[in-house]
């Protein structure tokens, strides 16, 4: 099961990140999880939001370059070693992780981990088979 992630191009200059987040806020886009990959000249802001289509429209209208891609959202126990167990499943299946980031769930008992792997389908199947819970776009909307 995949969820959609938006990636936004941001120049590495003061105020650029605040501007894009402000724009999303004004348009009532709720951010569920986020992460920034940065280089000397630019950064990629990765977002999991409550309404991906609307966010994409808002960004386009605001003059931002953005693209959507599929990632996996995994629910893991918020206990020591919880994530390590999930990663060893991926590792055991020869699936490599491009990047990942996490957010704590409001319930406090589990954490949401966003993972970008080289093969989403294979990773989903392997994790589900081991009893891990994967979130859907629907789940994300309802968080």
């Amino acid at each position: 099961m995949n969820i959609r992630q938006l990636s936004v191009f941001i120049e590495n200059k003061t105020g650029k990140l605040s501007a894009v987040l402000g724009l999303l806020g004004e348009n009532k886009i709720d951010i569920r999880a986020m992460n920034i990959a940065d280089t000397r000249d630019f950064g990629i802001l990765r977002l999991i939001v409550n309404d991906t289509d609307k966010a994409a429209e808002v960004l386009k209208a605001g003059g931002y370059a953005s693209t959507s891609s599929n990632v996996i959202a995994l629910d893991v126990d918020d206990t020591p070693g919880g994530l390590a167990g999930a990663l060893s499943v991926l590792d055991g299946n020869g699936i490599s992780v491009e990047y990942m980031y996490a957010s704590l769930s409001s319930a406090g008992s589990s954490a949401h981990i966003i993972i970008r792997v080289d093969d989403n389908e294979k990773a989903s199947a392997a994790l589900s088979a081991k009893g891990y819970k994967l979130l859907s776009d629907e789940d994300i909307r309802n968080i």
């Binding site: 990629i44 386009k60 370059a65 953005s66 990632v71 990047y99």
Partner: peptide, 16 residues
């Protein structure tokens, strides 16, 4: 050069 939706990727590696 101006970035476009089409040239953008979610990974830095692809862009670089």
């Amino acid at each position: 050069v101006e970035m476009t939706d089409e040239m953008l990727s979610d990974t830095v590696k692809d862009i670089q």
